[in-house]
Amino acid sequence: MLVVLWYLTSPLMSWLKTLLRGLATAILLTPWPVAANQEEWAPAWVVSLFDGLFAGNDSGPWRAVAPLVAVLLVAFIVALLESWRQRRKAVAGADEDYDDD
Rank of each mutant, 00 (worst) to 15 (best):
M1R: 13
M1F: 08
M1Y: 15
L5W: 03
Y7D: 09
T9R: 02
S10H: 10
S10V: 04
P11H: 11
P11L: 06
P11W: 11
L12V: 00
M13A: 12
S14A: 05
W15K: 12
W15D: 13
W15V: 02
T18Q: 03
L19P: 00
L19R: 08
R21K: 14
L23T: 13
A24N: 01
A24C: 13
A26I: 07
A26G: 14
A26V: 06
A26C: 07
I27F: 11
T30D: 03
W32C: 03
V34I: 13
V34G: 02
V34F: 06
V34T: 08
A35N: 00
A36S: 11
N37M: 12
N37S: 15
E39W: 11
E40I: 01
W41K: 08
P43H: 09
P43L: 01
V46E: 03
V46C: 02
V46F: 03
V46A: 04
V47K: 02
V47Q: 02
S48F: 00
L49V: 07
L49P: 00
L49R: 08
F50N: 14
L53W: 12
L53C: 07
F54W: 08
F54L: 14
F54P: 03
F54G: 00
G56P: 02
G56W: 13
N57E: 10
N57F: 02
N57G: 11
D58E: 04
S59T: 09
G60A: 11
G60H: 12
G60V: 10
P61W: 12
P61F: 12
P61K: 05
P61E: 01
W62K: 03
R63A: 07
A64Q: 07
A64E: 08
A64D: 10
V65Y: 04
A66V: 07
A66C: 02
L68I: 06
V69S: 14
V69Q: 02
V69P: 04
A70R: 11
A70D: 09
V71M: 14
A75I: 12
A75K: 03
F76N: 01
F76A: 04
F76I: 00
I77W: 11
I77E: 10
I77L: 15
V78Y: 10
V78P: 05
A79L: 05
A79C: 08
L80P: 01
E82S: 08
S83M: 11
W84S: 09
R85Y: 07
Q86W: 00
Q86C: 02
R87W: 14
A90E: 14
A90T: 13
V91K: 13
V91C: 05
V91W: 09
A92T: 03
G93P: 00
A94D: 10
D95G: 08
D95F: 06
E96L: 10
E96M: 03
E96H: 07
E96G: 00
E96K: 09
Y98M: 06
Y98E: 12
D99T: 09
D100T: 09
D101M: 15
D101V: 13
